[in-house]
Amino acid sequence: MNYDQGWSGDVNSEDADRATKAKRRKLILIFAAIFVAVIVAGIFFGRKSTPTAPSNSAPTVTVIVPGRTAVAAKVTATGSLSAKRDMPVGVAGEGGMISRVLVDAGDWVRAGETLATVDPAVQAAQTSQMQAQIASAVANAKLAESNLDRAQALVSRGFISKADIDSRTAARDAANASVRLAQAQYREQSARLGRLDIRAPASGFVLARNVEAGQIVSSGSNALFSIAMDGTLEMQAKLAEQDIAGLKVGMPVTVTPVGAGRSFQGAIWQIAPMIDPVSRQGTVRVQLSYDPSLRPGGFATAAFSSQNTEAPVLPESAVLSDDQGNYVYVVDQNDKVQRRAVKIGDVSDAGLAILSGLQGNERVVYSAGAFLNVGEKVVPDLKK
């Protein structure tokens, strides 16, 4: 009896231990499943709620709103130097062989001064022939006059008829006409002889000499000399039509020739009345006084100071440049960086005048560093 009870007690004890262990394993599995589920849900919902671009990751940049300030708009242009009045000098007469050349390029000449002469041998001989013809005509006229005088003295005696008087009078008039004709021909030949001397039509500076002694020239030859009238030069600059609108005749211009160590002051003397419909440009002609450093045919830069205008003014740190030209960074209404091409005008202590590209109400990056990219979102900080 005792044995049975002891065995039964042991069996019950073992069953209880097994049940306890099974329950414990079950609880462990339940807690493990719950833990895994919590982790998976956390990862899932964490990924779903994480922003792709945190708002605090955008860089902060300083911007300014330049507005518009009264500035003296300065426009620059390039062009070539030339004579304001280029006078080509050629052969006025019938020409011949050049016997002497009296001036060279770079000389100053006066109006009427002889530049070169043509050999006058043929024309001189023709002039002598004309003089002889005049002498012969004068002698014939004197003889006709004497014959008429004698005939008139015999009319009253009845030896000469009225018809003879009329004939002798006509002979005298014809002889006098021959004298006048010979004299006119002589003056013409003398004028031709005088035109063998190639003379300066006006005072000026000799730009080119295209003739040498011994050369045969005629009225169909090219210009033998080129003279800048009064030595006055000019620069012809090409400007856009919007730049020409602010210019007037008489405005001062600063011209700097390429390679020259200094600039020269000139003035606008003519503005082209027409704009090229293809290039949308017009020609502005700037008058310059003679100077040895100003060489016709050379290249120069002109700075035009037009009338005062209102334009945005930016610090130099806000303006960048590359192969495409000058530009600034602008922050748009979506706080994104945009590139804006600009045209720079005058430079002053206040900064750079922006002639085109900005209205003045834009938010311009104050210091446009290379770290900014077009389309990048930023946090603008308005400079005060």
Rank of each mutant, 00 (worst) to 15 (best):
I30K: 06
A32Y: 00
V36F: 14
I39M: 09
V40A: 15
A41M: 15
A41I: 15
A41N: 13
G42T: 14
I43A: 13
I43F: 11
F44S: 09
K48M: 13
K48P: 00
T50M: 12
P51C: 09
T52Q: 13
P54G: 07
A58T: 08
P59N: 00
V63M: 04
V63Q: 02
V65H: 06
V65A: 09
G67I: 11
T69S: 10
A72Y: 04
K74E: 11
T78P: 01
S82P: 08
K84G: 06
R85Y: 14
R85I: 14
D86A: 15
M87L: 15
M87F: 06
P88M: 08
E94C: 02
E94Y: 11
G95M: 06
S99H: 03
R100Y: 09
L102Y: 09
L102I: 08
L102P: 00
V103G: 03
W108L: 03
E113M: 12
T114E: 11
T114P: 02
A116T: 06
T117P: 00
T117H: 03
D119A: 09
Q123E: 09
A124S: 15
A124H: 08
A125W: 06
Q126E: 10
T127Y: 11
S128N: 09
Q129P: 02
Q129E: 13
A132M: 10
A137N: 01
A139E: 08
A139H: 06
K142F: 01
L143G: 00
S146G: 04
S146C: 03
S146T: 13
L148R: 01
L148E: 01
A151L: 06
V155K: 12
F159K: 07
I160H: 03
K162R: 13
A163S: 14
D164Y: 03
I165W: 00
S167Q: 07
S167Y: 04
R168M: 01
T169N: 06
T169V: 03
A170C: 04
A170F: 03
A170M: 07
